[in-house]
């Protein structure tokens, strides 16, 4: 055991910070829909990678939208990382601003597999409808 507070800090300070980072990650996972793969909580390989999640915008191609548009790439990337209402709204605003549409519908889908019948499907995890008039 550590004899002095200084020694205690030197021995256990960093592991305690690591625990705090894990606690913050768990908080974000449970309140902000952060993927378990990120945030320093060592939750990689606990579920299908968020890279395989799909952002679906009816009438628009997400792949073409992010080509040569770093802001769109960042905002939609953040949406996949944390598919919460706030990030959905940010993405919807940006898509409305850059497209000629009057309203937008954005969905985030997650892959799901059922080993019992070998079925692979996608489930809706969050979505938003936003009109230009609501901006």
């Amino acid at each position: 055991m550590a004899n002095t507070p200084k020694e205690f800090f030197l021995k256990y300070g960093i592991p305690i910070v690591a625990i705090v980072v894990i606690a913050i990650q768990l908080l974000f996972v449970n309140t902000q829909s952060l993927t378990k793969w990120k945030g320093g909580g060592y939750g990689m390989y606990t579920g299908i990678h968020y890279y395989y999640d799909q952002i679906y915008i009816p009438g628009l191609s997400v792949d073409s939208m992010i080509v040569d548009n770093n802001e769109m790439k960042t905002v939609l990337g953040r949406l996949k990382l944390m598919p919460n209402d706030k990030n959905l709204k940010m993405a919807a605003k940006l898509v409305l601003e850059t497209s000629e549409k009057d309203s937008i519908h954005i969905q985030v889908w997650k892959p799901e597999v059922n080993p019992e019948n070998s079925n692979y499907t996608r489930v809706l995890i969050n979505e938003i409808h936003l009109k230009k008039s609501e901006l």
Binding site: K36, G41, Y42, G43, Y45, T46, G47, I48, E112, V113, N114, P115
Partner: peptide, 15 residues
């Protein structure tokens, strides 16, 4: 984290 993940513990992830 793996124990807390139903997708992992059910084997769905590895499958």
């Amino acid at each position: 984290q793996k124990i807390m993940s139903s997708q992992f513990m059910s084997g769905d992830f590895y499958y």
